[in-house]
Amino acid sequence: MRCPRCVQRIHRGAESCPHCGFSLAEADARFGSDDVRVRTLTDAAGLFRKGEREHVQEAMGRISRRFPQLYAAVYTGALGEMAALRQFGFWLINRAAFEDLPPNKPNAAGILLTIDPDSKSAGMVFGYLLDPFLDETDTFECLSRGHAYWLEQRYVEGITRVLRHLERVLKKRVAQARRDPEYFERKVMPAAMLGDMVCSIREGHRETKTGGEVRK
């Protein structure tokens, strides 16, 4: 994954970005440290006309129906620069309290689509539940589906296209996880365990006290 501010890669379990020192605390300093009560569909920028919200909600609800663990959320608002959009997405998925979500659905099961009509940029972040299964390429492919519509300011159509493609990607990832669960388990394996594995292999190359022979 990448740091929301410097866009450099960071390792698993990093408390802060090793490159720029960014963490949630800095995002809190910028956007607020308290939880914010929003709905899964929040049109703060006023992009949707009357009757268009239902189309977006239908697309969002379809993801919840097909993937009962997950939910999709859409936020539109003026945030300024693209860098702010990255940090805002990261901040909102950690600080949002979605009013219209059942309590058994944590934010970690969410996929948040953020659109800033001022900076004309859109971002997509996801929680830890999908962290092993999705990567930046998948979310970028999803956002690419709405690019042509957003250029013409047809936001609703762009969002529905994005969510429809996201549904296909999630379906594919579920099938892959069913076929090869170890692949995804290895992706989220803690670094300490990885170190143990390296140690055990290296130990195999060392001389043992009992046998005294060296393996190659």
């Binding site: 994954m1 990448r2 740091c3 929301p4 866009v7 693209m82 959009l85 990255r86 997405g89 990261f90 998925i93 950690n94 944590p106 934010n107 970690a108 969410g110 940029s121 859109a122 971002g123 997509m124 972040v125 996801f126 929680g127 830890y128 962290d131 999705l134 930046e136 390429t137 979310t139 970028f140 999803c142 956002l143 690419s144 690019h147």
Partner: peptide, 9 residues
């Protein structure tokens, strides 16, 4: 709940 930027376009 989550970390990273996913993607931005």
């Amino acid at each position: 709940h989550g970390a990273g930027i996913g993607a931005v376009i």
